[in-house]
Every structure is written in structure tokens, then in C-alpha cells.
Design a protein around this nucleic acid. Structure first.
Lengths: 327, 327
DNA sequence: CTGAAAGCGCTAACAA
DNA sequence: TTGTTAGCGCTTTCAG
């Protein structure tokens, strides 16, 4: 591997001069500059970013830590964060926690050891105060974070929940169920609360047996709606905590000959790409992933700017109702 | 940020000793070892991976360069590479090229400057000899690479193409079209050749107007099958270069009241997760993404082992026919 | 405009 | 078992 010293030797200058030329600083004579640049190209010189990072104390890398890259929602987010980062000259390290808090802690640690300049993270559960204390790097969360000094960005789940339930009510459904994700998920909580409130506002009853929280998977949705249909008084519509769950429900409906949306209404949350597929056409609450990703990165940028102070940005992105075939 | 020197000072030892203790090397007395470890924890010491990388000339990072992370196929690959890498103690940097060769070249360069220990790459097009020369890092490609000294892993597209077309013929379709991806894509070429050969073997005619190559998107599939249906003699089945294209075709069929599979047969390639969705049920050729990802990383590991020599692994993964509702 | 020299934080000989 | 020392490849004062 060839270094600036090699170039310096051949050019007959000190390696400090090479460094200056390569970084196109003004205080180098055009002649030596060009000579060095040519030599660098000729020798196939590749700057060592590691060495540079060490002295500059900046890696030009940011970490994106998500629970599941293969989940379309997060892969869209990954995409848009990547785009924004690239424009700003940053490289993104994508980490997968697999919804495992231990792994999450590991990734958080590893990324700090790698001295990334900042972290964007969708935590599995709420990050404890201790864990937050341990993080001494600019960070932006996809989460309704409580601490004042932490920046977050999120969709307005409250508004989203209302949107969904009101829509169901307008469509004439009377027995609306909620099939949520993990109970520990705060956004799930918020959606569920909005669900309950909207039900009451709409003059409908809140029935505990129509509320169920569990995994964020198709299988889980399939299973859980199945149990609900075995109730003596089953629901006639369901608001799902995310589209994946809704897809499971749709599959169940299909397998059991239910007519959607006539006999049973389904609305999801997220608007993942599946949702718009032919013969899926899931009604849902759209989270604008491109906006989320971009804004998250921009928030991180300003956070990095003011670090170690905090910009404390609290960004709430408005969701949107998308009506398709299942309601 | 606290360093080993800080710890050394407090512990009253040289910082070399601290380094030894922290790396749990044998030649440190248990007492000093424990003292140092405690001190490190107490001070919240976080090793600087950058500094370590600089001296060890290893970053414990590998790059995964793909055209589109948000494409379910690649996000699955990303997932499985990630898993395998993690088990081996590596961190994965995921890069997105957006099917843009210029960007690809950039990413390749940047990753080398970051001194990743290895690269797994799905090139947009075939990498030129020059470009290959410029890469002085262990690399594994998702591609039928020609050079003897380059390792690659790929699905056996030839076998996949045969599988698809033979299946269509068995089902009784007589006028089978091919809707491929970019003509410059070698795997697309191979599938198309297999398509033609299988047609001939099956006693069917190869008609140029039933062959069309274009973008790997739903929109593209939708548009292109539309043009084909406007032919005076349209096809009665189509083998699509990937599932995304097939999804576009399915949408077209649905929008135009075609009965699939009775009037028109559709088979895709990849078996992305959409394919198994309720009311999609796309017949397809499955590429085992978990296996692809894992094996790619393992190949990279042995490649890194023997570097700068080459292991020259040529791995062909067998695809599988998955029959669902569209054929 | 250029060179000398001091580090960035760490590992790894080589001595002691 | 521990300390001393020389770097890894680069940026950045500070002189000249």
C-alpha cells in the first residue's frame, strides 16, 4: 500500500507538502501541487481514511441502528438515510439488532468504539437513562424520547391512530378491534390509546377482548385474528399496529372465506410497499419514509454541529390516510 | 474521551501494560489486570477502534455494495451477510449504488480508503478489467466473473431459466414470452439464453417480439407487458426476469381483467417475500437468499485468509421451482 | 511556499 | 511480569 511518504520521496518534497497538495490547500505552489497530484494518480495512491480519522478525530461515518433491515419499512428508511448522508459526504454503517436489546447494546457500543460521528437509532424498547448516559456521541432516535436533551423524530402516532379509527367508523364498522405490536413499544401504546379514545369519541365501546398485542409479524397477525374470530362476539373490523400484521390478517380472511371489506374491514399502519400491491390493496396509514430518513439525518447533522451541546429537536411527522381496498 | 494513558496514570503502570490487560493477554499479573479492568469500567473507557485498526492494519469491517437496499432481494441478502459477519466479529458497511456505475466506482473507492478488510459486491454491470485491477482488497462478487482469480457466488441462472420455461410448457402454455431486466445484466442474458434453448427443446418457436428487456421495476413490467398485449399475436404466458417485473405484469393482468393462470401464465424469478403474499401467490424460481449471503461472507473470509493470493471460489447455488397460483 | 516535528490512541517488539 | 520505544499514516502547528 502506497503512502504519502512514498509520494514525497519520489517528488523530492517533505510529506507534509504532499499532504497539503492532496488536500488542495492554498499554500502549495501550483507546480509542486500538480507534480504531486500526477504522481499520486500514477502510483495509484489511496488515502488512508483510518489514519486521517485518527488525527482529525472524525470518521465521516454515521451509524444507523435498526431492528430489522429486511423489514421493508426499515429498508426504506435505510435507503433515505443513505441518500441524505451521501450528499453530505458521510458513509452509513447499517446495523441490525433483530429486536434484541442485548444486541442493540452491543451495536451501540461497537459503533462508538468505531468512533462514528453520529448515530441514528430505532431502539427496540425505550432506552434507559443509564444507557443514554453511556452514549457520548450525537444521536437521533426514532422514538418519543422523554429526556429533554435527546433529539428524536417520529411519525405522529396519535394522529395516525385517530385517522385510522375514524375512517373505520365512517365506513360503518361498529366492532373495531386493535391488533398491536409489542406492548412495550411506546408508539404502539400511543396508537392504542388513540384507538381507545377515538372509539369513545365515536360512541363505540372499548372491549378488552378486542384488543391484543403481540409480535410484529404476519404469522402473529394471522394467529391472533384467528383467536379473535373464535370469540362469541367477534369484531367486524381491525386496526393493525402495522401493515405486516394486517397482511397476516388479510391472509387469514382469505383462507377463511371472509369478504373484505364487506364483512370485515382491515386497516394497517406504515404503508409499506406490499400494501399497494395488486390484490393486496391494503388501506393504511402512511408513514413517509423518505421524509423520515432525510429529516433524521438532517437532525443528526445539526446535532453533530452543536455537540457536545444538544439541539434537542423534537420532530413529529404527519401521517396520512391511504384508502385502498380493505376498508 | 478517556484513553489507555489515562488509565495507566491512575493505575500507576505503563500504558503498554494497560493495553495488555485490556486485550486479556496472558503476561499480566492477575492483580494489576483486575485493577486495570476495574479502573477501565469505572472511567467508562471505550477502546478506540480507529487507532487499533491503524496499527493492526485491519479494520474488522467489510463492505457490502448492492444496487438497491430497499429491494427486498438485496435487503434479505444484507440481512444474511450481516448475520454471518456478526458471528465472525465483523461489522458490515452497507452501500447503495442505485444501479449507477459511477456511484458504484465511488463506493468501491471509498470503502478501500476506509480500509475495509473485504468487499462483497453485486456490480451493476460487469466490472471491467481495469476496475478489477484497481481493487486491492479481498473481494467476492455476486456475478459470473470471468477472471480466474476472482471469487464469485451466484445462483445458477441457467438452471433457473430452464426450470421456469419447462414448467410453463408442462402447464400447456404455447406462446411464452420473456420479460427481462437490463440487457447488460449478465445473469439476465443467461436466463434469456436458457429461455430460448428450453423453448426450442420443447418444440416451441422463439419470437423476437415476445422478448423484451428493460428496467427491473414493477412499472416497467406493467408497461412492457402492455405493449406485448397490443401485438397482433400476443403471448399466453411470460417468464419474468425477476419477481418485481412479474408483480407489474400481475397488476396489469388484474387491471385488464385477465384470468391468471387460466388465460395467462406468469412466473417470476427470485422468490422475494411479496411472492408468497395472500392473493399474490406468484409462481417463481427461488433464490435462497440466506444461503447466498452466508456463503458470500464465508467465501470472503477464506479470500481474506489467503490474500493477496486468491482462493478463486466459483460458487453456484441451485435455485428451486416454487409453484403457486399464477401458473 | 516548504520542512521539521509533534502527535492522534493504540499495538508489539525488545529490554529489563 | 512490566516498561521503553518505535511506529501505523496522516494532519497540523511552528519555524524558516
Amino acid at each position: 500500500m502506497i503512502t504519502i511518504k512514498d509520494i514525497a520521496e519520489r517528488a523530492g518534497v517533505s510529506y507534509a507538502t504532499v499532504s497539503r497538495a492532496l488536500n488542495s490547500r492554498a499554500d502549495v505552489s501550483p507546480e509542486t501541487r500538480n507534480r504531486i497530484l500526477e504522481l499520486a494518480k500514477e502510483l495509484g495512491y489511496q488515502p488512508n481514511a483510518i489514519a486521517r480519522s485518527l488525527v482529525k478525530r472524525k470518521s465521516e461515518m454515521v451509524a444507523l441502528i435498526v431492528p430489522d433491515v429486511s423489514n421493508p419499512f426499515f429498508s426504506d428508511i435505510t435507503m433515505s438515510v443513505n441518500e441524505a448522508a451521501e450528499e453530505a459526504g458521510y458513509t452509513v454503517v447499517v446495523c441490525n439488532t433483530g429486536w434484541d436489546e442485548k444486541k442493540e447494546a452491543d451495536k451501540l457500543r461497537i459503533m462508538q468504539e468505531q468512533r462514528v460521528d453520529g448515530i441514528i437509532c430505532k431502539p427496540v424498547n425505550e432506552l434507559s437513562q443509564e444507557r443514554l448516559k453511556e452514549i457520548n456521541v450525537p444521536i437521533v432516535l426514532f422514538w418519543h424520547a422523554q429526556p429533554d436533551d435527546i433529539s428524536y423524530i417520529e411519525v405522529d402516532h396519535e394522529a395516525g391512530g385517530k385517522l385510522a379509527v375514524r375512517h373505520l367508523i365512517e365506513r360503518g364498522y361498529k366492532k373495531i378491534a386493535y391488533l398491536g405490536g409489542k406492548l412495550t413499544s411506546q408508539s404502539n401504546q400511543i396508537r392504542m390509546d388513540a384507538y381507545k379514545r377515538s372509539l369513545i369519541e365515536g360512541g363505540l365501546e372499548v372491549r378488552e377482548e378486542w384488543i391484543n398485542n403481540g409480535g410484529f409479524s404476519m404469522e402473529s397477525g394471522y394467529q391472533r385474528i384467528g383467536s379473535m374470530f373464535r370469540l362469541s362476539d367477534p369484531p367486524d373490523a381491525v386496526f393493525c399496529g402495522n401493515d405486516i400484521i394486517a397482511l397476516g390478517v388479510l391472509q387469514y380472511a382469505r383462507d377463511h372465506g371472509l369478504n373484505v371489506p364487506r364483512d370485515f374491514g382491515i386497516i394497517g399502519f406504515d404503508d409499506i410497499s406490499y400494501a399497494s400491491l395488486p390484490q393486496v390493496r391494503l388501506s393504511t396509514i402512511s408513514q413517509p419514509r423518505d421524509k423520515l430518513g432525510r429529516q433524521a439525518f438532517e437532525a443528526l447533522l445539526t446535532e453533530m454541529d452543536v455537540y457536545p451541546n444538544h439541539a434537542a429537536q423534537k420532530i413529529l411527522v404527519e401521517p396520512e390516510l391511504v384508502v385502498r381496498g380493505t376498508t
